[in-house]
Amino acid sequence: MAKQRVGYFEDRQDPEAQCSRCRMCELICAFYHHRVGNPRRARIRVVALGKGADIPVSCLNCEDAPCMTVCPTGALQRKEADGMVLVNEDVCIGCSMCVSVCPAGAVTLDPVDGTASKCDLCGGEPRCVAYCPAKVLRLTDADLISRKRMRTYARSLVHTEEGKPGEDRK
């Protein structure tokens, strides 16, 4: 089964189908995992780039995960079901080497308990996906991301009417 992760699918043609920077994903993630309000404990973060670009970022579920490779204690291990790398907090020493090597910056050290913190797909039903009001987050795999991107490109070669808003998100 293809590696799953939470992906961001926006449609630049549709003002309501883009990340609105509401950060509900951050809030609900931290709440689900820690039962508090604290976006810095979330495993998904919205990066505000300015000029209308806001991008939610979370674990890419690498095939060959540098975080797992670099971990000195073996605290990072893959889950069977979706292949997500999980943190064993009892073993983690909070050295932050995984933080340094993640290509997406998607591993943090939890500010309250000091251990590595990363997306675990909420056990299979990611809360960020469920609660995003713009519905721009989806549980996905790289193949689907590629096919969406391919479709946008293919359409750009064909001189027909512009696609309806939301086309790329279906």
């Binding site: 003002p15 950060r23 509900m24």
Partner: peptide, 22 residues
């Protein structure tokens, strides 16, 4: 304004309405 100038709808912290304009 939506037709000619709107980039996207934006939301304040935790908002499911998203009435802010950009």
């Amino acid at each position: 304004f939506r037709e000619s100038y709107l980039v996207k709808a934006m939301g304040c912290m935790g908002c499911m309405v998203r009435c802010r304009r950009y």
